[in-house]
Design a protein around this nucleic acid. Structure first.
Length: 214
DNA sequence: AGGGTGATAAACT
DNA sequence: GTTTATCACCCTA
């Protein structure tokens, strides 16, 4: 079995996520070694998951076969990608948060407008940009060889002692669930950022607000 | 090193 | 109308 996590039930998506560290993602002439991922479970189980409230047009791919890619659009400008896990009909996915470029680095540098190398795929939206992907990859397979993306096992397995876990980045709900996994000591791992509530701009009234009572 | 914030649009209530 | 699984850039140290 070359892709053991493909047959892992959705309830064990965290195990699947750990198992994906060190794997290679290739697309459009760039290959990355995954250094950071996050697990998201399904309906009713994980308030931070897009599938928490059941199927919608956006998240329907999460309910499909494992190995497919779920791409979503956030903050009006960024694309992020997941690998779907769990059996068909269950919703679970692993968000690809960061990777180390191991092939096609010149292409990646151009796509990302020449940042420091460790930032090329440091963060989920940067990772998608470095791979030259977007909306079109949604629903394609990362394992059958016919889609734009190919996910392949590491040549040398990850050292288990290097795997660290902690809370997921930027999520509003379930911010204590330690379902973010990364490889300790990798420069490409994104810095942890807790969700910061944003105050909306004051409407019409000129922005006068009463002093905050502490 | 770390914290604040503007940009910007689709999904959801 | 509100929220958002982010990033780049600017500010204080």
């Amino acid at each position: 079995m070359t892709h053991p996590w493909l047959h892992t039930p959705a309830a064990q998506v965290a195990t699947a996520a750990r198992a994906m560290l060190g794997w290679t993602v290739s697309a459009n002439g760039v290959s990355l070694r995954l250094t950071e991922v996050e697990a998201y479970a399904g309906t009713g189980e994980d308030p931070a998951s897009h599938a928490h409230r059941g199927p919608t047009p956006r998240n329907e791919v999460m309910f499909g076969p494992a190995g497919n890619i779920y791409v979503y659009f956030v903050f009006g400008m960024h694309w992020c990608m997941n690998i779907v896990c769990g059996h068909e009909g269950e919703a679970a996915a692993v968000l690809l948060r960061a990777g180390e470029v191991i092939d096609g680095i010149e292409v990646a540098r151009e796509r990302r407008n020449h940042p420091p190398d460790r930032d090329l795929a440091r963060g989920p939206a940067r990772l998608v940009t470095a791979l030259g992907l977007g909306r079109d990859a949604n629903g394609t397979s990362a394992v059958d060889g016919f889609g734009p993306v190919l996910l392949t096992p590491p040549s040398t397995p990850v050292t288990p002692a290097l795997i660290a876990a902690g809370p997921r980045v930027g999520v509003t709900a379930a911010h204590d669930v330690p379902w973010r996994f990364w490889l300790e000591g990798e420069p490409s791992v994104s810095p942890y950022r807790r969700h910061t509530p944003r105050r909306r701009p004051d409407a019409l009234t000129g922005g006068v607000r009463p002093p905050l009572a502490l």
